[in-house]
Design a protein around this nucleic acid. Sequence first.
DNA 1: ACGTGTGAAGTCTTTCACAGCG
DNA 2: CGCTGTGAAAGACTTCACACGT
Lengths: 216, 216
Amino acid sequence: MEPDISIPDVVIKRLPIYARALTAMLDAGSETVSSKELALATGSTAAQIRRDLSYFGEFGKQGKGYNIPHLLDAIRDILNINERYRVVVVGAGPLGQAIARYGGFSEHGFQLSWVYDHNPERIGTTLNDVVVEDVATMPERIRAMQVRVAIIAVPASAAQEVADTLVESGVKAILNYAPAVLRVSSDVRVYDIDPVSALQALTYYLAPAPSRLRRT
Amino acid sequence: MEPDISIPDVVIKRLPIYARALTAMLDAGSETVSSKELALATGSTAAQIRRDLSYFGEFGKQGKGYNIPHLLDAIRDILNINERYRVVVVGAGPLGQAIARYGGFSEHGFQLSWVYDHNPERIGTTLNDVVVEDVATMPERIRAMQVRVAIIAVPASAAQEVADTLVESGVKAILNYAPAVLRVSSDVRVYDIDPVSALQALTYYLAPAPSRLRRT
DNA sequence: ACGTGTGAAGTCTTTCACAGCG
DNA sequence: CGCTGTGAAAGACTTCACACGT
């Protein structure tokens, strides 16, 4: 038996984009799609799509392309998004509130079941039918409900402590909105979303090209 | 003269993280930092930091490390974040409101000066001292004020149309919160932020390892 | 003839490892 | 001696291009 090869992270990050495009095509009533068409819809290339999918199996038919419902199902299966997830949100400040109120998560299988905060003024308030609870009660709840996904929406100064608590309680996937680098054990995944860093990376490209070139 | 070499995008995306860590160190009163220490603070490696910085010049001193104020200034200069940017936000729904109300942009030099929407019920309302205006008046304003940075916070179905309008008006950098792939001319940069895709990528890793390996 | 799946090639990115400077 | 800057090597990812199945 040959050694199994693990799949590049960058491939995993593209799968949700493929799934999104396939969902739109399914809704539009299409039956099949070629790698070329899917590339056009996702901003990728045909070769990349074929390569990406080939990590997981053979989903297409030569001369025909991919059956949309079948491929979509396969990708959803690979990403484990056919399952429904309970998600805790830590931080009920403006950002946490916006996240808790955003309807988009629920319709994609992520149930924002609990919002936690530290601040007594926020505890007991309600966001989208969810009551903000004291963060002190969080570990017990996470363990009892076996929550594996969390969203951190606290200030940077509190983020590491929150992450430690989450990890200790059994959380394995963290979506981190705090502008902080989190140190977690290697079996826990962190995905950072920081709009300020994003904008700062974007403004680099606003300079006239010459200054963006390496000295020689 | 040798041909200049352009800098990898992935390097540019790391610079804001370095800047953030250096700012914290500066506030903490440190004078110098080694690539090793900076690596620890940013979740990178010493070699990578040295290589990344070497694209832009020689900022360190052997045996000593990097002078924090000097390096921070250099990075801010590379990213063009010493400048202040006017930013338009398109979409005054829940997401646009949260973005407009989030204070973090302004303190990093991004001035969310205008919020636009399509919906008459939202036009005229106020978010953080900013009045929501009719998107029909947006192109003129962008051109007049030479706005180059925009944030898209509209539903996916409207995102491409908004992007087209922005680009036509002269915007060169777009932070896209809509779950849609935007097609823009090659002199315009798009940075996508999609929390649902992020969560979907994260849940991949929740499966027991065996199913995450390539068939052989 | 069309379009997949994939070796092989090419390109990009990271890491190693060390000369050389302070 | 400590630490940078960087050739060279290794590794990761993308693209090419084509054999093969439909």
